[in-house]
Simulated assay, not measured.
Amino acid sequence: MTTARNATTTRKPPPGRAEQILRAGERVFARNGYHGTTMRQVADAAEVGLSLVVYHFKTKDRLYRAIFEARQYVNEERLARLAALRDPTAPDALDQLVSAFIDPVLALHDDPADVWYARLVLREASDPSSQERDIIAELFDPLARAFVTALERILPDRPPGFHAWAYLFSVGALTQSAFDDRITNITGRPDAGGKHEFLRSYITAALRGA
């Protein structure tokens, strides 16, 4: 039997110096935003010459887009898991949908180097100028439509507008979960763990109980 994970077509980031630049770009863009970042800052963070960054990516816009394109394997896995959900009337259909939605992203949170990309996604999605770059529209909106359609099949009795808003509220919870240090700032105590299951329970309960 083919599992959702095995069915995923995974496109890994390019190897070598190009990958080094992309990972550095994730950190710098996540901290400074698109407009607050320069190619030289990325080169310094990657510990390479500016000429090498220009050689691989030509412009800041191309570098920025390449970061998201190199991470598209995350969304591809989410879609593959969603496609494996065959029966929307199954008792665990909503649980399967939530797992497909959050698990590939939460896997990034487990690696301190990868979590910067999760933070960058939030920054791009909340940037008023993001429409100029079309990254969200091209790389994330097809995913959103697929999940909204699946929600409509699993929860057909909800009122108009519910499914799209439920998806966006879930996106908000998922993206904010990339900032573990907020827990320490709010409570004055280090995070005791359990974030993954707390988030899963929160989103599932909100969808089911609405």
Rank of each mutant, 00 (worst) to 15 (best):
T3S: 15
A4G: 14
A4V: 04
N6S: 08
T8D: 06
T9L: 13
T10R: 12
T10N: 05
R11C: 04
P13R: 11
P13A: 12
P15Y: 04
G16D: 07
R17D: 06
E19R: 14
E19Y: 06
I21C: 05
A24D: 09
F29N: 06
A30H: 07
R31E: 15
R31A: 15
N32C: 11
G33C: 11
T37Y: 11
T38S: 15
A43I: 08
A43Q: 09
A46S: 08
V48T: 15
G49R: 07
L50F: 10
L50Q: 10
H56D: 13
H56C: 06
H56Q: 11
H56R: 07
K58L: 06
T59F: 12
D61G: 10
D61I: 08
D61S: 14
D61Y: 08
E69Y: 01
R71A: 10
Y73K: 00
Y73P: 02
N75T: 14
N75F: 12
E77Q: 15
L79E: 02
L82A: 12
A84F: 09
A84H: 13
P88I: 02
P88W: 00
D92R: 00
D95A: 10
A100S: 02
F101M: 12
I102A: 07
I102K: 02
I102Y: 07
L106A: 09
L106D: 08
A107I: 09
H109A: 07
D111P: 05
A113H: 09
W116S: 00
W116N: 03
L120T: 04
V121T: 10
R123F: 01
R123P: 01
A125P: 00
S126D: 13
S126W: 13
P128Q: 01
P128D: 02
S130L: 04
Q131G: 14
I136K: 04
A137C: 01
F140H: 15
F140Y: 15
A144P: 03
F147C: 04
V148Q: 04
A150L: 03
R153T: 00
R153I: 00
D157H: 08
R158V: 09
P160H: 09
H163S: 03
A164L: 10
A166D: 05
A166G: 02
L168M: 11
F169D: 08
V171A: 01
L174Q: 02
L174Y: 02
T175R: 14
T175E: 15
Q176W: 13
S177L: 05
A178Q: 05
F179A: 06
D180R: 11
D181F: 04
R182L: 15
I183V: 12
T184W: 11
N185T: 12
T187M: 13
P190D: 15
A192L: 14
G194H: 14
K195A: 13
K195D: 12
E197H: 15
L199Y: 05
Y202K: 10
I203K: 05
T204H: 14
T204L: 15
L207A: 08
L207S: 02
A210V: 04
A210K: 01
A210Y: 10
